[in-house]
Amino acid sequence: MVLRSLNLLTVLLSIAALPHISQSLHFELHSGRTKCLSEDIKSNSMTVGNYTVVNPNEPHPSPQSHKISIRVTSSYGNTYHHAEEVQSGQFAFTAVEAGDYMACYTAVDHKPEVTLSIDFDWRTGVQSKSWSTVAKKSQVEVMEFDVKRLIETVNSIHEEMFYLREREEEMQNLNRATNSKMAWLSFLSLFVCLGVAAMQFLHLRTFFEKKKVI
């Protein structure tokens, strides 16, 4: 049992030691159109986002047609961020509700139609913390920074495991409830079929008796 725990800890530390994976996205949006992106966030988890409309006329100012509106909402419809006709911005909040969070971008309606390029960086959990602003130059402080980062990553993985276990239990309860309902529906269907067959038998028997066939 101890050996198994040590192996699990080794795997978690190996995952934590992997290079940071960027969640930056780049997508295109046409004038007057809306595009939504979703992220599954657990409760009490920190999340930050940065978005920018790429300026096609660098180094000149960005044209007025290159503006967007953004709204970030939870699966329950609560709004956590809202901005109208902006070229860039950011948001940060701690998720109160667990579930899918939606970031919807709407491009300003413009004629003739233009295509906007948008850079979007959305990070949650331990990845949302700007550890790079905390790191120092000395070797001791760098090691301390790495240890803190590993601890935060392991804690995040631990919390994620519990979160996935809760979701798995919810799915198992749903499957059991569905199977129970399907079983009752099958028995009801069988009872109806037997009832209809009995009625047809009695009807045919009465019919043949009247015709004096039997």
Rank of each mutant, 00 (worst) to 15 (best):
Asp146Leu: 14
Arg123Gly: 00
Gly125Thr: 01
Gly77Thr: 05
Thr115Ser: 14
Asp119Leu: 14
Ile151Val: 10
Trp122Gln: 03
Phe93Glu: 06
Trp131Arg: 09
His81Pro: 00
Gly77Pro: 08
Asp121Cys: 11
Ser88His: 10
Ile151Phe: 06
Asp100Ser: 15
Phe145Glu: 03
Phe91Thr: 01
Gly77Phe: 03
Lys137Phe: 11
Pro112Met: 08
Asp119Gln: 12
Ile118Phe: 07
Lys136His: 04
Pro112Ala: 07
Asp146Ala: 13
Tyr80Ile: 07
Glu141His: 08
Asn78Phe: 04
Ser156Lys: 04
His110Pro: 04
His81Tyr: 15
Ser138Asp: 15
Phe91Asn: 04
Gly125Asn: 07
Ser132Glu: 00
Thr133Glu: 11
Ser132Val: 00
Tyr80Gln: 07
Tyr101Ile: 03
Glu160Gln: 13
Glu84Val: 11
Ser138Arg: 13
Gly77Ser: 09
Val126Ile: 08
Cys104Leu: 09
Glu113Leu: 03
His158Asn: 13
Val86Phe: 05
Glu84Tyr: 00
Asp121Leu: 14
Glu160Asn: 13
Lys136Ala: 07
Lys136Glu: 05
Thr79Phe: 01
Pro112Arg: 11
Glu97Trp: 05
Ser156Pro: 03
Asp119Cys: 01
Ser88Ile: 04
Ile157Ser: 04
Met143Tyr: 11
Val108Met: 11
Leu116Pro: 04
Val140Cys: 01
His82Val: 00
Lys136Met: 02
Gln90Asp: 10
Val96Pro: 03
Thr106Gly: 02
Glu97Tyr: 12
Ser128Gly: 02
Leu150Arg: 12
Asp100Ala: 15
Ala95Tyr: 12
Ala92Glu: 14
Tyr101Gln: 12
Pro112Gln: 08
Val140Ile: 10
Val140His: 02
Thr124Val: 05
Gln127Val: 02
Asn155Tyr: 05
Asp146Phe: 10
Glu84Leu: 01
Glu141Val: 02
Gln87Asn: 05
Glu85Tyr: 07
Val108Leu: 13
His158Ile: 08
Val86Leu: 06
Ser130Ile: 05
Gln87Thr: 09
Asn78Gln: 11
Asn78Arg: 13
Met102Asn: 11
Lys111Ser: 13
Gln139Ala: 10
Thr94Asn: 12
Lys137Ala: 12
Thr153Ala: 15
Leu150Ala: 15
Val86Asn: 08
Glu84Gln: 09
Asp121Ile: 01
Cys104Asn: 06
Val154Cys: 11
His110Glu: 02
Val142Asp: 07
Ser117Asp: 11
Phe120Tyr: 15
Tyr101Ser: 09
Leu150Met: 15
Asp119Lys: 14
Asp146His: 13
Ile118Lys: 09
Val86Ile: 14
Asp121Pro: 01
Val86Cys: 09
